[in-house]
């Protein structure tokens, strides 16, 4: 049946072979990483990479594919983290159950916020989602009896397996990266499916899309909810990993950091987002010594990247390289 048609439909899965191979490569790397990196510092930082990758993957689908610039991912990250933390540390729920309920809560909030803000476009959408982030940041600080206020929320229990808390860096490494690899796999499939195609069509313009019978607002809400859920899942895992959450998790600064990750890796490239998270997380760790200047440096970097490489630094460099290569050849 397939003999007569092009190479495109010889692919058994929606995901192109190259992405699948890269994904399996990453799986292999994750499997051996504890031996390569040794225990301690490197593996610990790599666990943060796995966590921060979740909101970045979500934002990549929402902004890069569907073209809906949202600055609410830090808020959903914080929502997941605090809901998980409060339910397990204060209410005494099993951490797994707390994590699950946190995602349900985040989904409900995302449906509502998405329904309200996705009628807006461009700058208005960015401002509305930024406002939501600010509201969450204020609520975290003000509702001290629930959230611990500025002191943060401590004593969050770890996730456990068969009665044993997952506490060692290596065990956490396998848990966190299994989740992140799963989410990445889902996102890659989605990006290359009919949904990803519809998102890119919506990004280009709504008018013709609606006339093709595509339900634009429904797709926008779906991808917004999914992408917010990825962020809140990252937040919940963070809470049970660090066992402590502070208001910084829901700050506008963190929201901008996630956007910076995409600015570095390329807005519509999931692998670029992964590389961006990797680079930024390790950079952040090393930049601790000059933390005061870090914000300024990152801010300047964001402006410079957006001016010269509006599709993202890595993506822009790759495209420029290809142009040079073609000229040379």
């Amino acid at each position: 049946m397939c003999a007569s048609c092009s190479t495109l439909c010889t692919e058994p899965a929606p995901m192109p072979r190259r992405d699948r191979n890269l994904w399996f490569g990453l799986c292999a790397l994750v499997l051996v990483a504890p031996w390569l990196l040794g225990g301690g510092y490197f593996i610990n930082t790599s666990n943060f990479v796995a966590i921060y990758a979740l909101p970045a993957i979500g934002l990549c689908l929402l902004v890069g594919y569907c073209g809906q610039l949202s600055i609410s991912h830090a808020a959903f990250f914080a929502l997941g983290a605090y809901a998980s933390g409060i339910l397990s540390a204060r209410q005494g729920l099993n951490p797994w159950l707390a994590l699950l309920l946190a995602q349900v809560l985040a989904a409900v909030v995302a449906v509502f916020i998405g329904w309200v803000v996705l009628r807006l476009r461009g700058h208005y959408l960015a401002i509305a989602t930024l406002s939501f982030t600010i509201i969450i940041e204020v609520l975290i600080k003000e509702l001290g009896s629930l959230t611990g206020g500025l002191q943060g929320l401590s004593g969050i229990p770890r996730l456990s397996l068969g009665g044993w808390p997952i506490a060692s860096d290596t065990a956490l490494h396998y848990l966190l990266w299994t989740v992140t690899l799963g989410v990445l796999w889902f996102a890659l499939n989605l990006a290359h499916s009919r949904m990803g195609r519809a998102y890119r069509a919506i990004k280009e313009g709504d008018a013709a899309t609606a006339l093709l019978g595509v339900d634009v607002s429904r797709h926008k809400i779906e991808v917004f909810v999914l992408s917010s859920l990825f962020a809140s899942l990252g937040g919940s895992l963070y809470a049970h990993f660090v066992t402590f959450v502070s208001p910084a998790a829901g700050s506008v600064m963190f929201a901008i950091d996630i956007i910076l990750v995409l600015a570095f890796g390329g807005f519509d490239r999931l692998w670029g987002a992964m590389l961006g998270v990797l680079a930024l997380t390790y950079l952040n760790e090393y930049a601790v010594t000059f933390a005061d200047y870090k914000r300024v440096a990152f801010g300047v970097a964001l402006v410079v990247i957006m001016s010269f490489f509006p599709t993202g630094l890595l993506a822009g460099l790759v495209a420029a390289g290809q142009r040079l290569w073609r000229k040379g050849a």
């Binding site: 889902f186 499939n189 949904m195």
Partner: peptide, 9 residues
């Protein structure tokens, strides 16, 4: 096929 079916491939 919806979002979940597409994402799970």
């Amino acid at each position: 096929s919806g979002l979940v079916a597409c994402g799970l491939g």
